[in-house]
Computed example of a mutant assay.
Amino acid sequence: MNEMLPLLTYCVLMSSTPGPNNMMMVACGAHHGYRRTLPAILGINAGGAVQTFATCMGLGALFTAWPALHVALKLAGTLYLLVLAWRLVGSPVAQDRPPEQVSFAQAAMFQAVNPKSWVKAVTIASVFMPVQLGVVQGALLVSLVGAVVGFPCISMWALFGVGIGRVLSSPVRRRVFNAIMAASLAVLALMLMR
């Protein structure tokens, strides 16, 4: 347990702090409610677990060997966040037409271009892999811990969005909320390119 505590703490911090996944979940929770956002939450956790497992199995070494790959993923993640921001600004605000929901598959695949997810996966692989277990068992363990810890943390952001959604009763309020969330995603995207 003493060896697991630092991993648990790291996973809580990485999953609870603002980032691309959490900003998406606030917007999804506000517009669609928790139940309809649940597939995206599960997709983030599944995609992150696969990413962490693959990184622990050696994928992270590719970034060291080919730094251009890291730059390309960073650029793709930035562009994706800007597209999300653009779609959020242009989304309809009428009561009967909420913005498109993020699916399980979209959320899972987004982890491949989410720089924060890569930082988390590479850090877990390089710092928290248990040396007393075999590579596969250790990779499975830390991937599972990341997913289990991530679920309530990411759910917290979606529920925060649900709470915000309750005050978005008028089209003007929804439009302002969409603009704030889009600006947050755009700022986050630009920060990722530093």
Rank of each mutant, 00 (worst) to 15 (best):
S91H: 08
L5G: 11
F151E: 03
L59V: 04
S169Q: 15
G138K: 09
P171M: 03
P115I: 01
L140A: 06
A125Y: 06
A158G: 12
S91I: 01
S16L: 15
L190V: 08
V162N: 14
Q137Y: 03
L42E: 01
N114D: 05
G161S: 11
V187T: 12
E3Q: 15
A27F: 04
A125R: 01
G134M: 02
G48D: 13
V145Q: 06
N178K: 03
G146L: 10
P115N: 01
K116M: 14
V89T: 07
G60N: 00
W118T: 11
M4N: 10
V142I: 11
M23C: 11
S126M: 08
F160H: 15
L188I: 02
F110P: 00
N45F: 10
S155R: 03
N21P: 11
Y34T: 03
G146Y: 02
A108D: 02
M25K: 09
A65G: 14
A68T: 13
T55M: 07
S103M: 09
C56G: 14
R35F: 05
S117E: 14
P20N: 14
I41M: 09
V136C: 15
A183Q: 10
W86G: 00
T17R: 04
C28A: 09
L84P: 03
E3G: 13
V162D: 10
L141D: 04
Y80E: 01
C28E: 08
Y10S: 04
W157M: 12
M25Y: 08
G33P: 04
M191A: 14
F104I: 00
Y34S: 14
G165W: 00
M1P: 11
L42H: 04
G165M: 04
M57P: 00
H70C: 09
F110R: 06
A147W: 09
L168H: 09
L5E: 15
